[in-house]
């Protein structure tokens, strides 16, 4: 539940301020108005506005590789972090950040997680990418081959004999696997 606290507090305080907004359009055509310091966490947006002198406040930046759903998740994270940063410019309140991140990611399914990894990669938000890939790693650690295949959406193209051979070769790696 701590995450909903963080997200609601960040949205309420950000909406109470008049600040410069940046418009971002997702792949399905939805336009997000994002506070400038939050949008600037998206490296692709930052460099777009830094490199193009003719862009104005009215420019709507298209982000064809980001879905609306992923964008919601990404903005939630970036807004919360902007809020932490604004409150504590010297050092982020670590306990709070950890509590937020844990709650934030608990609610995401594997599919949502992957979608957000792709979006974070495309938008070039290294902090979020590190965090999400770390979470993905945790989710496949100690899981069965079948689970990891499903996680990555990998089709098993080994013949049964080949797979049996491989399993024998890496036998020791398959001991002590958690339940899926």
């Amino acid at each position: 539940m701590s995450s909903s606290i963080a997200s609601s507090s960040s949205s309420s305080s950000s909406s109470s301020k008049k600040e410069k907004k940046i418009s971002l359009k997702t792949s399905d055509g939805e336009v997000f108005e994002v506070e400038e310091p939050v949008a600037m966490q998206l490296e692709i947006v930052r460099s777009f506005f830094a490199d193009n002198e003719d862009v104005t406040e009215q420019t709507v930046m298209p982000l064809p590789n980001v879905s609306t759903a992923a964008m919601h998740g990404i903005l939630e994270y970036c807004r919360a972090h902007e809020e932490f940063r604004r409150r504590m410019p010297e050092a982020a309140p670590e306990e709070e950040v950890r509590a937020f991140e844990a709650g934030y990611v608990d609610r995401k399914s594997n599919e949502e997680l992957k979608e957000m990894i792709l979006a974070a990669n495309y938008l070039n938000i290294s902090k979020l990418l590190d965090f999400l890939t770390g979470v993905a790693a945790k989710r496949i650690e100690n899981k069965s081959v079948e689970y990891v295949r499903a996680f990555f959406g990998v089709e098993n193209d080994f013949t049964p004999e080949e797979e049996a051979n491989l399993r024998r070769e890496y036998e020791w790696a398959f001991e002590g696997v958690d339940e899926d």
Binding site: K114, I117, L118, N121, L129, D130, T133, G134, A136, A137, K138, I140, E141, N142, V145, V148, R149, F152, V154, E155, N156, D157, F158, E163, L166, R167, Y170, W172, A173, F174
Partner: peptide, 26 residues
């Protein structure tokens, strides 16, 4: 859709034993 760099990124968080295991996926 998950580019190789991201796969490396994910794998880099895992202990070697788990990385070994991924050889058997496909």
């Amino acid at each position: 859709s998950l580019p190789e760099t991201i796969l490396y990124h994910i794998l880099s968080f895992l202990p070697p034993v788990v990385i070994e295991k991924t050889a058997i996926l496909s």
